[in-house]
Amino acid sequence: MSSGIPPEQAYLLDHWSTTLASLITLSPSAQNQFHLHITPMITHSPSLRSAICFMAACHISVLTNDSKLWEKAAQYQNDAISPLRRPVITEPPLVSLAIIMMLQITDRLFATKSGVNHLQGAKVIIEQAGPKVWDCDAGTFLLTLCSHHDAIGSVSRRAPPILSLGGSVPYLEGMKPMRGLKILWATIGQISSMYSQDRALLDAQGKTIEIALQTLTTYASHEGDVGHTIHACKEAAYIYLHRVWHNVGAPHPMTLKHASDCLNHLFEVPVSSPLVSAHPWPLWTAAGETIDGKLRDRVRERVKEMYEKRHLPSLLRLGEDIEDVWKVKDKERTSTGIDKIDCVQAILTLRQRGVDLI
Rank of each mutant, 00 (worst) to 15 (best):
E308M: 12
W16I: 05
L36S: 09
G4W: 00
C233I: 13
V133Q: 12
A236D: 05
L165I: 10
L202D: 01
S29I: 05
V226G: 01
E305I: 07
A30I: 12
D339N: 15
G206D: 04
P161S: 01
M102N: 04
D356G: 03
G166P: 09
T334C: 08
T25E: 12
D79M: 14
I126F: 06
C58P: 04
S314D: 08
L283S: 03
I5V: 15
S156F: 09
V155K: 03
Y11W: 13
Y219G: 07
M101C: 08
P40C: 05
L184G: 01
Q120P: 00
H228N: 15
Q9N: 07
A200W: 09
L94I: 15
E332Q: 13
A287L: 09
R243E: 13
V269E: 01
K123D: 12
I126E: 02
G130R: 05
V344L: 06
L165G: 02
R243N: 07
I322R: 02
G130E: 08
N264Y: 14
K68M: 13
P253W: 06
H311R: 12
M101A: 01
V276Q: 08
S156I: 06
I60K: 07
W70H: 12
I191M: 06
D261V: 15
S50F: 11
H252E: 14
R158Y: 04
G354R: 11
L163Q: 01
H35S: 09
L318T: 03
I5C: 07
A74K: 13
V62W: 01
E127A: 13
A346P: 07
V169K: 03
A186S: 14
R298D: 07
A151H: 01
H222S: 14
K234R: 15
K327F: 07
T187H: 02
M175Y: 03
E235M: 15
Q33H: 11
L36A: 12
L145D: 01
R353H: 09
Y219A: 13
G293I: 11
I338V: 14
I60Q: 11
L143D: 02
S221V: 10
N78H: 13
E308R: 10
F34G: 00
A236G: 05
D339V: 09
H148C: 12
P313S: 04
S193P: 00
S27G: 01
